[in-house]
């Protein structure tokens, strides 16, 4: 009888242990599922915030996105939001690059026009020389700034609906002589294109 009691006791203890293991596993699984749900919810709200965020820089938002992506959340909605954020950031980067390119181009144009002030000085000198010989000397000096005496000169007579209207294109040699003959400098420089050697290969003027 005593022996039987011992066997029953051991059996009960063993049974109790198995039941306890099973319920612990369940709890752990439940906890993991809850944690995953929390992560998904958190990721979704962060991704939504990234989609609406205009205050942080692109780089900051890219870091935040990388953090979320690093969690490897296997959820279709999260993945879709990640793609949306990536597309948005890519579009913003492209816009920024285009803006920077435009700014750089504008800066370059301004710098070229500033450099071209020496050309404008030559224009004034040629007009005001009052003497053919001096004017011709100045013309020869000015021509050194150009790729060739046949460098095209475009003269804008007006801009209408964004489209420039030009006078008949001429060459720098003819234009400098025009200044000498007409004794007037009716145009201002608006654009200068240089070749790799720094010589002007196209000049754009506008009636002033």
């Amino acid at each position: 009888m005593q022996r039987f009691c011992w066997i029953l006791f051991i059996g009960l203890v063993a049974l109790g242990g198995v039941t306890s293991c099973k319920s612990k596993k369940k709890i752990a699984e439940q906890q993991a599922a809850e944690a995953k749900a929390r992560r998904i919810s958190q990721a979704k709200s962060e991704l939504q915030a990234l989609l609406n965020d205009e205050s942080r820089s692109i780089e900051e938002r890219e870091q935040a996105l990388a953090r979320i992506k690093g969690q490897n959340i296997d959820d279709p909605e999260v993945q879709a939001l990640i793609r949306q954020v990536e597309q948005k950031l890519a579009a913003e980067k492209a816009r920024r690059a285009e803006e920077e390119r435009r700014k750089a181009e504008e800066e370059r144009r301004k710098a070229e026009v500033a450099k071209a002030m020496t050309i404008q000085d030559y224009f004034r000198d040629i007009v005001g020389s009052g003497n053919t010989e001096i004017a011709n000397r100045r013309i020869q000096e000015a021509l050194q700034l150009f790729a060739s005496p046949d460098t095209p000169v475009l003269i804008v007579i007006g801009t209408f609906n964004g489209e420039k209207d030009y006078d008949r294109p001429t060459t720098i040699s003819k234009y400098l002589n025009y200044l000498k003959d007409q004794k007037k400098a009716p145009h201002r420089i608006i654009n200068v294109k240089r070749n790799a050697a720094g010589k002007i290969e196209e000049l754009e003027l506008e009636k002033q």
Binding site: P152, L154, I157, E163, D165, Y166, D167, R168, P169, K193, E201, E202
Partner: peptide
């Protein structure tokens, strides 16, 4: 109204 190729682009101009 005429056009002329300059620096790889077509320039529209008024020829008087």
């Amino acid at each position: 109204r005429k056009q002329q190729q300059i620096g790889g682009r077509l320039i529209g101009f008024w020829d008087v």
